[in-house]
Nucleic acid binder design. Sequence first.
RNA 1: GCGCCCAUAGCUCAAUUGGAUAGAGCGUUUGGCUACGGACCAAAAGGUUGGGGGUUCGAGUCCUCCUGGGCGCACCA
Length: 547
Amino acid sequence: MGFQEVIQKGITSAIKSTGIAVDGPEVILEKPRMKEHGDICTPVALTLAKALKKNPIGIAEQIAESANFPPDTIASVEVVKPGFINMRLAHGVLVENIREVHRLGDDYGRSGLGNGEKCQVEYVSANPTGPLVVVSARAAAVGSAIVNLLRAVGFDAEGEYYVNDFGNQIEALGKSLRFRVKERFGRLDNGEEIGAYPGDYLKTIAGRISEDLVTEWERENSVARYAEHAANELLRSIKADLELYGVHFDNFFRESSLHPALVEKARTLVDDKGYSYLHDGALHFRTTDFGDEKDRVLVKSDGNPTYFLADIAYHMTKLERGYTRVIDLLGPDHHGHIPRMQAAAKVLGAPDNWFEAIVVGWVRLMEGNKPISMSKRAGEFITMRELINDVGPDVAKYFFLMRRTNAPLDFDLELARKQSDENPVYYVQYAHARIASVTRFAAERGAARLGQKANLSVISSPEERDLMVHLIYYPYVVEGAALSREPHRLTVYAKELASLFHQFYHQHRIVTGDQDLSSARLALAEATMQVVRNTLSLLGVNAPRSM
RNA sequence: GCGCCCAUAGCUCAAUUGGAUAGAGCGUUUGGCUACGGACCAAAAGGUUGGGGGUUCGAGUCCUCCUGGGCGCACCA
């Protein structure tokens, strides 16, 4: 049981034992914004005052007086102004937490909250019609961080990439590749145009196709060969880019594998539930019954299934595969899909809240304060690979994870390139490297082993205490970030942790002639290093021991 | 026109999901190492949270209207 649960229990039973309320509200604990307000506080008396129409201060005082906590957890309880109960943690609980960090190591911050529940995060899922661009880089960073977070709190989470290797866009891709191939061998017809995908990358792919193969494909007179080849080549390079970025998917699911059987099955399912109807020769899904603004087409009047129907089939497989919850990361231009997918989930028989959509906000690349213009149509855009080559995977990921996921993001390349104190990534990594360096120094002095058995009661300065308080909150930050799917909380936490360490380091020398003090401070520094590493690991960012 | 998202210090962003005096970094000004990493630390200045109204003990956060920006509103994916 964590320290918060212990406090919660103490307050809850105080509310009951004093007879303030038989069935009190959930005791919400918060970290006060200001240090003067203690280490932890609760506004529960304010909530109670509202319900009971009594004076909140009085209630708070009653709770404060009768609350019992295990020894060495709470040092002081104070009731202030409107009715807050502010508490100060005892040194013992902070010390015990440092030992906990050492004991658990990489597992500190992990929990079994999710009970091994099987869930899935689908992200990136960009069409294999070109290289990944920067918005996909953001989705990749966010998606993989969410998977890491869910695993950390005990969910059996998987990351999946849905490959749209079917349909009109792929056919258009085939045509464009065919153009590049004919261009290369000088076989272009008069007035022939490249079509939808004019980017140079198809030239590269065309350049690797042998003339024999081309002759064979031309004999079949089918763009399908070109399309299949292009999609496979592009998917291969997308996978390579993701590998370079350090983002690993558990599965790549191809849309083509849904056709035709599963797509047909999905259509039948909607039919059988009575939500489909024919209109103008096309089969429609009455998604308006579930709050969508208009009904959506499932089968076009030419007999071909829409993307939406395939997507229903895809989510049908997710349900069949036993995920109790699926989280889809959607591009900023796809937020309109949410209502129809919710409708689909209902008709598929999924439980409430089974389908969850997160919209990843736009990314605007900046060079200082000058936006970089990009046009996908003209084939001019900065790819994810170019971004990684420019600033490195760690910086790229960290920048994407600093902002709330659904908010638009300005990515300043000029700042990202800087290896200096202006760059927030290095600030955090520097703290880790600095501690690693100190431990090396301590080892030379033979002080390293002392850290393990340190008597932490000898440290008591404000800087040390602030650091310990921040460390004790880490598991709750992980939990909150996971449950709210907000990985950016981790970057905020990491920055604060690094800052508190730097303050401590600046104020106190760790390795001194005083062995007791040295080993105690070393134990604290090493615990900090461990938590920095755990945090960065969830973000998918390296924690270098030197830089 | 309808719907969704965004708007917080000069810039980039936080704000424990309705809590206390809205906080950091960068930039600006000023100061700080003869010992463990100066990619660091400290101090100052910087705000009508886009605007009006409402809900209540309490609003950046919730409801409403308005302004400005982005994106959707295909028998495309």
